[in-house]
């Protein structure tokens, strides 16, 4: 069904080398609008390198990237952001000393004229707009005037996601979004991912927590030593099979004809 639409993101035969090491070797994948794709693999499998290629941190050595059907060159993070590809890293990149709405508008502050002379920050506008986007995503934070350092890990994650959504992310890449969170907060973040999906945003999730991945992902792509070793629709697979692909211990009979 999804295959009839144009993929939001399509990467073809991406290769990224660091000196003699081939970190990503001829990997192809696509993400459709409103689809959640999980990137799985053991440490060093090449997941992070692959998303850094997509988000503009590392330009690829070989391969093509298509966004909304058109071939694009992503040479730096700004290129990616301008296309609508937002990446949320594990450290979230929030200024903890600033409040919630200031972070959502960081670097793109809304200004107004003071006494018709000087441009000053328009706090009311930024507060109200932030409130709207948080409400739309069903995020509850007591007051947007609170500094980030007063918030829990899950709330911070929500703020980072809201910022991407407010600035019209079409594809959201999340690196270990639930790693540092408590159980209740993990569930909230996963709910948020489902909300994004319903709103037509494409999501790539990197996670070690298979349980989370099975909760939200539509499709799973498994990498091992820089190569794509399997791709499964979530409802057609189980965690044993995925772990098998990740560590390379799958039985030959099981994987016959399925391996790429």
């Amino acid at each position: 069904m999804a295959d009839q639409k144009v993929p939001l993101l399509e990467v073809k035969n991406i290769v990224k080398r660091f000196g003699g090491l081939v970190a990503v070797n001829r990997v192809s994948m696509e993400v459709y609008p409103g689809e959640v794709v999980a990137l799985l693999g053991d440490n060093g499998a090449g997941k992070s390198t692959l998303i850094k290629v997509v988000s503009g941190v590392y330009p690829p050595d070989e391969g093509e990237i298509y966004f909304e059907g058109k071939e694009v060159k992503i040479n730096n993070p700004m290129d990616a952001i301008q296309l609508g590809i937002e990446t949320i890293y594990q450290d979230l990149a929030l200024a903890e000393n600033l409040n919630v709405y200031s972070n959502i508008f960081l670097g793109r502050e809304k200004l107004k004229k003071w006494l018709g002379l000087v441009s000053v920050l328009d706090h009311d506008y930024m507060h109200d707009e932030s409130k709207k986007v948080l409400d739309r995503l069903g995020i509850e934070i007591p007051s947007l005037k609170n500094k980030i350092k007063m918030l829990s890990g899950g709330q911070r994650q929500s703020v980072a996601i809201s910022r991407s959504i407010y600035w019209k992310a079409k594809l959201l890449i999340m690196d270990e979004p639930t790693a540092a969170l408590g159980v209740a907060e993990q569930r909230k973040v996963l709910d948020l991912v489902r909300t994004l999906k319903d709103q037509g945003v494409g999501v790539i999730i990197i996670s070690h927590q298979l349980y989370d991945v099975f909760q939200v992902a539509d499709r799973m792509i498994v990498l091992r030593r820089g190569e794509k070793v399997g791709e499964r629709i979530t409802k057609d697979t189980n965690s044993d099979e995925i772990v098998g692909l990740m560590v390379g211990a799958e039985l030959v009979e099981d994987s016959k004809g399925e391996e790429v």
């Binding site: 979230l92 200024a95 000393n97 960081l106 670097g107 441009s119």
Partner: peptide, 18 residues
């Protein structure tokens, strides 16, 4: 009150975030 000031605080809070 200004964007310049806000960015000054943001850089001090997290240079990477800025």
């Amino acid at each position: 009150r200004t964007q310049f000031g806000q960015h000054t605080y943001a850089i001090g809070g997290s240079i990477d975030a800025a």
